[in-house]
């Protein structure tokens, strides 16, 4: 999480008296660390499986070590190369489109002065966030079906002559996924931007009005620079998640015909690791994803450190 360092910590001397006073904190910490080691750190030892021919009977520390064989298999698998492409492409498309939509929505909603209008719109905008992906993909599926609203409208306006089965063509898949993401999260993501806009000094707008600036100019020269720090922080936080953004929607909306563009690393892991029981291969694919994610975060953080005061850690 982004934290601007603001530490005026007084050095606390390590004494028996202090330790005794803090015993409650220490006991709680102990249990929480044990919990963390079991559920978050212990699974990291499972990464070893990626370098061996894991057999459940022999366990992680008894299975045969095979070096980088699993990774070799992965990168020689044409499907996996496509899977990497899909994950990246959808991750980037989704990040860019959801960010643009959130900023746009926040700015435009902020231009509505009447609270009785603004509040209900905002409430409606949160609605999709609270629906599960199951519900969202189900609704989306019905809307885009042969008898759904989208085909109805396109037919009525004479744009197409015959209903399109949107889920049968690879070319529609990425845009549909991006749309689904935007539909679900725009209102929610805009909350932070709206808060950032609220924090901008009103005097700036007043001064601009007196100088004769119109609303578009005010947005360009006051609002946009005002939300830039928030924008950067969120971008930073999300860059590391680019590869994580590829599971639920793709899994739920994908089908045999669009497999070549719908499969992501997580789906690949699920398919090989859980369904085919090739734990080693699944782990190798997952490890690759984690490694790239961490690399992305480090790079993003370094860039941010260089060009502004914003950074993650």
């Amino acid at each position: 999480m982004a934290r601007v360092k603001n530490e005026n910590t007084k050095k606390v001397k390590v004494t028996w008296k202090e330790m005794k006073k803090q015993s409650f904190l220490m006991i709680v910490s102990f249990f929480i660390v044990v919990y963390g080691i079991i559920f978050y750190y212990w699974p990291l030892t499972g990464w070893l499986m990626a370098f061996e021919n894991y057999k459940p009977k022999k366990g992680i520390f008894g299975s045969k070590f095979v070096g980088l064989d699993k990774f070799k298999f992965l990168f020689e698998d044409a499907v996996f190369i496509k899977v990497i492409r899909n994950t990246f492409a959808m991750g980037v498309i989704n990040l860019v489109s959801t960010t643009i939509m959130a900023v746009l929505f926040a700015i435009i909603l902020n231009e509505v002065r009447k609270t009785w209008l603004k509040k209900p719109i905002q409430t409606i905008s949160y609605l999709p966030h609270f629906l599960s992906w199951i519900v969202v993909t189900g609704i989306l599926h019905d809307s885009l079906s042969a008898t759904g609203i989208v085909n109805d409208l396109l037919l009525k306006f004479g744009i197409i002559k015959q209903a399109i089965n949107f889920f049968a063509f690879p070319k529609y898949f990425w845009p549909i996924v991006a749309f689904a993401q935007c539909w679900k999260e725009t209102g929610w993501n805009a909350i932070i931007y709206l808060a950032a806009i609220t924090a901008i000094d009103p005097a700036l707008y007043e001064a601009a009005s007196i100088d004769g600036a119109d609303r578009l100019q005010k947005i360009r020269y006051i609002t946009l620079p005002g939300i830039k720090p928030t924008f950067l922080i969120l971008l930073l936080m999300n860059v590391g998640n680019v590869l994580n953004a590829g599971f639920e929607v793709q899994y739920l909306l994908g089908n045999g015909l669009v497999q070549s563009v719908s499969q992501t690393i997580d789906i690949y892991v699920l398919k090989w690791g859980i369904s085919q029981n090739d734990y080693s291969l699944g782990t190798a694919a997952g490890l690759f994803k984690s490694a790239v994610s961490i690399l992305l975060i480090v790079i993003a953080n370094a860039i941010a450190k260089r060009y502004s005061e914003q950074r993650l850690f």
């Binding site: 999480m1 963390g36 079991i38 559920f39 978050y40 750190y41 212990w42 699974p43 990291l44 030892t45 499972g46 990464w47 499986m49 459940p56 590391g240 997580d266 892991v269 699920l270 690791g273 859980i274 734990y279 699944g282 782990t283 997952g286 490890l287 994803k289 984690s290 994610s293 961490i294 975060i297 850690f313």
Partner: peptide
């Protein structure tokens, strides 16, 4: 904070 960025992944967690 480390747990936010590093995790074992689906298979190791499943086995755990």
């Amino acid at each position: 904070v480390i747990t936010m960025y590093v995790n074992g992944g689906m298979i190791p967690i499943f086995l755990l």
